[in-house]
């Protein structure tokens, strides 16, 4: 201890304190302050960058989920539309079929009516002609029959006889 005290130099102590305290303030202003600030800034920057990257990742995930959802919706819509179209097609075909059937039936009916009318007309015509022919034939026969007076008289007689009967 005595040796230590003997070794102690006040001058050196004085300079040491002076240099060291001076160094602290000098370095604080020109080195430690700016260094620690830069390091802090950088660390903050890295932290922020990491956070924003995480945010971006989450957003990306959300977006992807959205996309997935939209895609699914679109797919469902497409399927629905296709189904509808198929149904429409089928209904159209069946409608057309029914309509065609009805039209065909109508045409057939009309045709039948027409045919019936034509038939009747034809029959009527035939009847008329048959009647005409019969009259002609009858005329010709009558004329031949009535070519003599006797026969005429006979006819009148019979006719008159009929009248009186009436």
């Amino acid at each position: 201890m005595e040796k230590l005290l003997d070794q102690f130099s006040f001058g050196l102590f004085f300079w040491q304190i002076l240099i060291f305290v001076g160094l602290i303030f000098l370095l604080k202003k020109y080195a430690w302050g700016p260094i620690l600030k830069s390091v802090n800034d950088r660390e903050e920057g890295i932290k922020n960058a990491l956070e924003s990257a995480e945010d971006a990742r989450k957003e990306m995930q959300n977006l992807q989920a959205d996309n997935e959802r939209i895609l699914n919706e679109a797919r469902a819509e497409r399927d629905g539309m296709l189904k509808e179209a198929r149904q429409l097609k089928e209904s159209m075909i069946s409608d057309a079929k029914e309509e065609a059937q009805a039209e065909a039936d109508k045409i057939v009916k009309q045709a039948q009516v027409t045919i019936e009318g034509e038939k009747k007309a034809a029959i009527a015509e035939l009847k008329n002609q048959v009647a005409g022919l019969s009259v002609e034939i009858a005329e010709k026969m009558v004329r031949k029959e009535l070519s003599n007076n006797d026969k005429q008289l006979e006819l009148v007689e019979s006719m008159l006889g009929d009248v009186t009967l009436n």
């Binding site: 001058g11 300079w15 240099i19 060291f20 020109y30 080195a31 260094i35 830069s38 950088r42």
Partner: peptide
């Protein structure tokens, strides 16, 4: 005795060295 002794010179030297080294670090940012 307030002499600029060998130790004082060494401390000044190290002080200067530290000042320039760490100022260069501060500046390099």
């Amino acid at each position: 005795d307030f002499s600029i002794t060998k130790n004082v010179v060494s401390m000044l030297l190290i002080g200067l060295l530290m000042f320039f080294m760490f100022r260069s670090l501060a500046r390099s940012y």
